[in-house]
């Protein structure tokens, strides 16, 4: 196997330049002039809501989606031009199980190894080792059909490792999994990272991105808004703190409260969000250099406007706050 990536150790694992994907009969670009790179051995996270273009980006990088414009280079190879050259270097763990249901658990791994030309003895030993490591060793001769969601996810990770890829793509790896399995998979992903595999992860789970990734790109409507380390992203919020004010009153007061809050000394920005189910509940986010001096004046401003205060809280910046700061929307909606 020609190992382009090994000849050039300083080469990034992934380089994406001005990538565009527009599906036929679609009004907007699913991926819209996206550029980023992922260093070798890095855990890179693509964070964004459903429909942001994360899966399409992974689709391009893994040869399934043909880009409309721009280039994607994985392991030093142009994916669109030489998909066959890229395939031995990558592995994909998709969002939903695509395990081969005609096979047993162990066969899923041994056949996958065979597809990639792994010699029989090696693939059999590797399959048994991976199944034991992932806690599936005692059920390896069962049909895949009998596996639960969490077990399928683990098996898909084992399958992805059968041909020892350089870059592992995980598309929403812990979506819909129970908390225990989620923590277990995070540990496995960290182990893989320490063994040198480059990991490209898409998620809409901010905690997952924060805890696992070396760098995160936040994606929305097909575009990458920012791309930085988790700590760097949190610094985007001016002063580093957010004061969250929950007010209760006639919805017509919303705008005047927002203006009063924005006029307070030290406040750099105010975002207001409505509750669609209860219009009288209004939430304001005050971004400021320091939250403490703003608490009193903010409370006073809400009360003076004629509304009640239901809650006041000072938030340390999380990726969720960063996402709201950037888009004005909650990631989960």
């Amino acid at each position: 196997m020609v190992q382009e990536i090994d000849r050039m150790p300083d080469l990034p694992a992934i380089v994406v330049s001005d990538l565009v994907k527009r599906y036929p009969q679609s009004a907007a670009n699913a991926v819209d002039r996206v550029s980023f790179h992922v260093a070798r051995g890095e855990i890179f996270g693509l964070l964004g809501p459903n429909g942001a273009g994360k899966t399409t980006t992974i689709g391009v990088l893994t040869t399934f989606v043909i880009p409309t414009a721009g280039t994607a280079i994985v392991a030093g190879i142009d994916v669109a031009r030489r998909p066959l050259g890229v395939k031995p270097h990558i592995a994909v763990v998709p969002q939903l199980s695509n395990l081969d249901r005609g096979l047993t658990v162990r066969e899923v791994l041994t056949f996958h190894g065979a597809y990639f030309g792994v010699p029989r003895k090696v693939r059999e030993a590797r399959a048994d080792k991976l199944l034991d490591e992932l806690g599936l060793g005692n059920r390896k001769h069962e049909s895949v059909k009998r596996y639960s969601g969490g077990m399928s996810q683990r098996l898909m990770i084992a399958r992805a490792l059968m041909h020892e890829p350089d870059v592992l793509f995980l598309d929403e790896p812990t979506n819909n999994l129970d908390p225990q399995t989620r923590l277990y998979l995070w540990d496995r992903i960290r182990e893989l990272h320490s063994s040198g595999v480059t990991i490209f992860l898409s998620t809409h789970d901010m905690e997952e991105a924060d805890r696992l990734c070396d760098r995160i790109a936040i994606m929305d409507h097909g575009k990458i808004l920012v791309n930085d380390t988790p700590a760097g992203l949190k610094k985007l919020i001016a002063g580093g703190t957010v004061l969250r004010v929950e007010a209760w009153g006639p919805p017509c007061l919303g705008e005047s409260i927002r203006c009063a809050l924005a006029a307070l000394c030290g406040v750099t920005r105010v975002d207001a969000s409505d509750n669609s189910e209860e219009p009288r509940a209004m939430t304001f986010r005050l971004y400021s250099d320091a939250a403490a001096p703003v608490i009193g004046p903010a409370a006073q401003a809400v009360l003076s406007a004629g509304a009640e205060i239901r809650d006041l809280s000072v938030r340390q910046p999380t990726l969720e706050e960063v996402f709201i700061f950037l888009t004005g929307r909650n990631l989960r909606k």
């Binding site: 893994t62 040869t63 998909p83 066959l84 695509n98 081969d100």
Partner: peptide, 20 residues
């Protein structure tokens, strides 16, 4: 029909190092 259906079981083979 199964391979290309909802679960896309064929993806594993499509990712193998041979032309589509």
């Amino acid at each position: 029909v199964v391979d290309l259906g909802y679960a896309r079981e064929i993806d594993d083979r499509l990712l193998s190092p041979l032309p589509i």
